[in-house]
């Protein structure tokens, strides 16, 4: 290398790159030493000057060192979606009645149960009241009302998580020429687990409703659909 030219990396960095594998191995060995004694077989060795025995390692060290340094993975501060922290509006607490604004159930008033790991809200109609099943909703498509149910005593099944609600992908059978025009769509079915959980959760939510001071009107309220009348502006209204 010419003495006048600039080095792309400092000498220290280059040395570090060159010795990276050595260093890694050294670190690994150090750890291994800490954890357990070296794995291997002890074999007796003949000869006076060879010591009486030697250890044959169970795993051989690589015969070659790589000729090229492999790119090192940089440490990134970015987190995948899974690691994101999901905030929840303070107005939404378990038992809050929410008005759903988007999707199949828009306009319905539903009961909020809990926030799932993906940040989505787990809600239920209850299904027997307004037809909204156990379901995930994004909090941006929801108006939180001041009306709250006391659902502290409700026990939700532990299997109600994000995977539970994910669409199950089914492999498509390869198409034959014969059934090219035949509809191969399968009818949507509700899993027996969901049916079971729906009954279980609804029962508890309805019990909580019966304990609300306005329990006589509460189911009617959940049944009713939200809409804006004349001269009602949502940004000016209290919910």
């Amino acid at each position: 290398m010419h003495t006048n030219s600039y080095l792309r990396f400092s000498r220290k960095v280059i040395l570090h790159h060159l010795s990276i594998y050595e260093g890694k191995d050294a670190a690994r060995n150090a750890k291994a030493v800490k954890r357990k004694p070296a794995k291997g077989e002890t074999k007796k060795v003949g000869g006076e000057k060879n010591g009486s025995e030697r250890i044959v390692p169970a795993q051989k060290k690589p015969r070659y060192y790589p000729t090229e340094t492999r790119p090192k993975k940089l440490v990134s501060r970015k987190r995948s979606f899974n690691g994101h922290a999901h905030k929840l509006r303070p107005s939404i607490t378990p038992g809050t009645v929410l008005i759903v604004l988007a999707g199949k159930h828009k306009g319905k008033r539903v009961v909020y149960l809990k926030q799932l790991r993906s940040g989505l809200l787990l809600v239920t109609g209850p299904f027997t009241v307004n037809g909204c099943p156990l379901r995930r909703v994004n909090q941006i498509y929801v108006i939180a009302t001041k009306t709250k149910l006391n659902i502290d005593n409700i026990k939700l099944p532990e299997r109600l998580n994000d995977d539970y609600f994910k669409k199950k992908k089914t492999r498509k059978a390869p198409k034959n020429e014969g059934d090219l025009f035949e509809s191969t769509k399968e009818a949507k079915t509700v899993s027996p687990e969901l049916k079971e959980d729906q009954v279980n959760v609804d029962k508890q939510v309805l019990e909580a409703i019966s304990k609300h001071p306005d329990h006589k009107l509460f189911t009617g309220y959940l049944k009713s659909i939200f809409w804006l009348k004349k001269s009602q502006f949502p940004h000016n209204m209290i919910f």
Binding site: I99, R109, T145, K146, G220, I238, F239
Partner: peptide, 14 residues
């Protein structure tokens, strides 16, 4: 009327 919540409005309706 302005201070009414969503549930209050429903009660008035009923």
């Amino acid at each position: 009327r302005e201070a009414m919540s969503d549930f209050d409005r429903f009660k008035v309706l009923k």
